[in-house]
Write a protein that binds this DNA or RNA. Structure first.
Length: 803
DNA sequence: CCGACTCTATCG
DNA sequence: GATAGAGTCGGG
């Protein structure tokens, strides 16, 4: 077995296959499938993943692997197979699938440098000699961007200069200096006797080690003994102490202690719900459970106890949470229960921290991982359960390159490990609930809140009515009164502004001109921080307009009730209220999200004002009022899931109120109170919503009755974009069965991004075995244009967003 | 004839 | 995706 098949780190159609390499004798027993290696590829060096080993190759001359990048494989057989599955399922390159499964710290960095060929030093052009006078090497980038590029190229061609390629591991293992005594206790006492009395600090250090003869961090040692670096160094020089550099994990939860918490006694309802899960765990069965439980019904406790069962059996658990609710509160609950056995993975961690957490899993130092979407790839080998909380969240779907849904990956992995998946939600997706109805998933229901607290009373306010009564403010009379009331009672309020699709655009009040991005078909967003207008799609930025470019009127204003504007209004009408604002502007800094929530939890403010990000996971006893300022902003988005999304969001945010002793109230302001998703979320009636929405999905041929696939074509030239989309539509019509519905070409909801026109074709189908093959044919057909970057075709199977 | 540029096959 | 080598063009 001295030949390895390797997938190289070149994400392109033509290189998306295995390449054979010789394994040098010294590595023959080292290199295994799933390892990263450095291989020569054409003239350069690239990273690659070994996928298999074999004896013979159809190629006569093989090149050799340069060196392995790992000691242990980073992908085991299961994950290698999962990579194949991902590739097929999402139509991505195999290398992209592998990289999606690993922390980004493992992605190679490449460096290309130029050196003087020492044998020909005397022939090198004097200008270059001068440029490289006291430098060992120049980076290729520097050279090619300078004005001597052609001279350098010539010198490279005639061999006076040589080009070197490096593959670097981003491996940034953190190391720390550790100190350990070289002698035993008696030895140290001996040394202490022979030390002069004046060396006081040295005595202190020796005392320390006589008392605690073990390895300590240098930093800690200095802190405790108040000695200096020099003192320690003196002892090292005398060979009394030994210094070593040791790898440590960066601990994002450092300096925090988590008191062990016992298990709660389950309510009768919880006990009934968990029984089938425990049964599956006990018998190593693969089941998918849909845990449908109203907000505050104690789903988390069920997760915790299920995980505990798994750990007791020697298994491991993956707990997925939406990014946005991966708050310290959530992490705390898991750390309190499972202590050091928990790894945490979320986007707030640095690349290095994520890498550390990954290695804890890889080295089997933890049993549980709590994390966002990508944690579903945690390299456990004894998986006993995968839990997906808030199953309906759209953040479980990756929206670029490897367009996977964590739910699908979870089920795929669970099949392999013969273990169960729990999908939990108060507002399940229609897809999941329908599967539960058909017994594909097993439905478990929690209909009551813990401690029998009532769900909050919801009041829906018709804002058109308010306007007719002369109230032009953004607060209805009812909401205002209730706000005042809570202020007096010293209780807390959460105000949500549903901003999506309603950002603060700039409009002229005289002529109606709206500031649009010059490159994209989308309005610019006002940013207060630097008084500028920005495009969220291409990054275009310009300064705020002083006057309307169309009519020169100065009545140009930013519109859309942004959170800042609400904050200002609150200051006017309720000047005594303390407000914490939470939105993209106030939560960009690391940890700021957490700090704001903590401050609110400690009662440092009366009102928490924010966007969707406040709808999930907050659980504070003193919140008794939830206000939704404009419930319908996302109802009119061009997406067949907009009703479902609205219902979910309103139900979730309502669930923030009255979770503990005090009863909660919810006020929902809307311009379309008659809409069923608003009306039914007011009644917290998921079942009726499900039935009504299912009828609509059936008549319009949408999921769960049909699967959908979205093809988006973009090109600089409008006509090309249209005609390619047209050809694709026709091809799909001919290639697929009678039952498939092909819609399009039609302009994308955002018809132009970065000066590229976007057209799309939507395919609805029930069963199309040929679907993926058809897409592959299309990509092959347009290969050349795609490679030249003029054309772009993106294919999303089961898209979550229709943009 | 040379350099600058574009196109395209290939990478094991 | 990056590269080298082939092919093309235009100025001298």
């Amino acid at each position: 077995m001295n030949i390895a098949t390797v997938i190289v780190d070149v994400p392109a159609k033509q290189t998306d296959r295995e390449f054979d390499y010789m394994i040098p004798d010294k590595w023959v027993h080292i290199i295994q499938p799933g390892m990263r290696v450095i291989v020569p590829f054409g003239p350069r060096m690239v990273q690659g993943f070994v996928t298999s080993l074999k004896e013979k190759s159809q190629w006569k001359k093989l090149r050799s692997i340069k060196e392995p990048m790992d000691i242990d494989p980073v992908l085991n057989d299961e994950l290698l197979a999962l990579g194949d599955w991902l590739t097929e399922e999402t139509l991505c390159y195999k290398i992209s699938a592998f990289q999606a499964m690993l922390p980004s710290a493992m992605k190679a960095k490449y460096e290309k440098i130029i050196k003087i060929n020492d044998q020909k030093r005397n022939q090198v052009h004097p200008i270059i000699l001068q440029m490289m006078e006291n430098k060992d090497a120049l980076s290729w980038k520097e050279v090619i961007e300078g004005d001597k590029a052609s001279l350098f190229q010539k010198e490279v061609r005639n061999g006076h200069l040589e080009v070197l390629y490096y593959v670097k591991n981003r491996n940034n293992k953190k190391t720390m200096r550790m100190i350990i005594p070289a002698l035993n206790k008696e030895g140290l006492i001996q040394v202490k006797k022979s030390l002069p009395k004046t060396a006081k600090k040295q005595h202190d250090i020796l005392d320390f080690f006589i008392e605690t003869p073990k390895k300590v961090l240098l930093k800690e040692l200095l802190d405790i003994t108040h000695a200096s670096n020099g003192t320690v160094k003196a002892l090292i020089d005398k060979e009394i102490l030994v210094e070593s550099n040791e790898e440590v994990y960066r601990d994002p939860y450092e300096n925090r202690t988590f008191a062990k918490k016992p298990f709660f006694k389950l309510t009768d309802e919880q006990a009934i719900a968990i029984a089938p899960i425990k049964e599956s765990i006990k018998n190593d069965r693969h089941d998918v459970f849909l845990l449908y439980g109203v907000t505050g019904s104690g789903k988390t406790e069920i997760y915790l106890q299920a995980i505990d069962d798994v750990i007791k059996k020697g298994g491991e658990a993956i707990m997925l949470v939406p990014e946005i609710s991966l708050t310290p509160q959530t992490v705390k609950r898991f750390k309190e229960r499972f202590g050091e056995q928990v790894a945490v993975m979320h986007s707030g961690l640095s690349i290095g921290e994520k890498y550390d957490e990954w290695r804890k899993i890889h080295r089997k130092e933890v049993k549980v991982v709590v994390g966002a979407r990508s944690a579903v790839f945690a390299p456990f080998e004894n998986l006993g359960i995968i839990i997906i909380d808030e199953e309906h969240e759209s953040s479980y779907k990756q929206e670029e390159t490897v367009r996977y849904h964590a739910r699908d990956v979870a089920i795929q992995r669970a099949k392999f490990h013969n273990c169960s998946v729990i999908l939990g939600s108060a507002t399940p997706t229609l897809e999941s609930f329908a599967r539960a109805q058909k017994n594909v998933y097993k439905l478990l229901t929690l209909s009551k809140r813990m401690n029998d607290h009532a769900l909050p009373a919801v009041e829906i306010v018709d804002m058109r009515e308010e306007l007719r009564n002369g109230n032009r403010s953004m607060f209805s009379q009812i909401l205002f009164t209730k706000l005042q009331d809570r202020l007096e009672k010293k209780q807390q309020t959460v105000l949500m502004l549903n901003k999506r699709g309603h950002s603060s655009f700039v409009m002229c009040r005289s002529c109606g001109y709206v500031a649009n991005c010059p490159n994209c078909e989308i309005s610019l967003t006002y940013h207060r921080s630097n008084h500028s207008l920005k495009c969220h799609y291409c990054g275009h930025e310009e300064s705020m307009l002083a006057a309307c470019p169309e009519c020169e009127s100065e009545h140009i204003r930013f519109f859309g009730t942004g959170t800042q504007k609400v904050e200002e209004e609150l200051a006017k009408i309720l000047p005594e209220a303390k407000v914490i604002r939470m939105d993209v502007d106030t939560t960009t800094r690391k940890g700021s999200h957490e700090r704001l929530l903590q401050a609110f939890g400690e009662g440092k403010a009366d009102i928490l004002l924010g966007t969707q990000m406040i709808a999930k996971g907050l659980d504070f006893p003193n919140i008794t009022l939830v206000g939704v300022l404009s419930a319908d902003t996302m109802l009119h988005l061009p997406d067949f899931r907009s009703s479902e999304k609205t219902f979910q969001l309103l139900t979730q945010v309502s669930g923030r109120a009255g979770r503990h002793e005090l009863t909660g109230e919810v006020v929902i302001q809307t311009y379309t109170p008659e809409h069923y998703s608003i009306e039914l979320s007011g009644q917290q009636d998921y079942n009726t919503f499900y039935l009504r929405e299912m009828i609509i999905r059936r008549t319009n041929h949408y999921p769960p009755y049909y699967y959908i696939a979205l093809v988006t074509v973009s090109h600089e030239d409008l006509m090309t974009a249209v005609s390619v989309t047209e050809k694709i539509s026709t091809f799909m019509r001919n290639g697929l069965s009678e039952g498939a519905l092909i819609l399009g070409p039609s302009a994308s909801p955002i018809s132009r991004i970065n000066n590229r026109y976007r057209y799309q074709c939507l395919i609805k189908y029930k069963r199309e075995p040929k679907l993926r093959q058809c897409f592959k044919t299309i990509i092959d057909h347009y290969q050349q244009e795609l490679a030249q970057q003029h054309l772009n075709i993106s294919i999303d199977l089961n898209p979550q967003m229709m943009m």
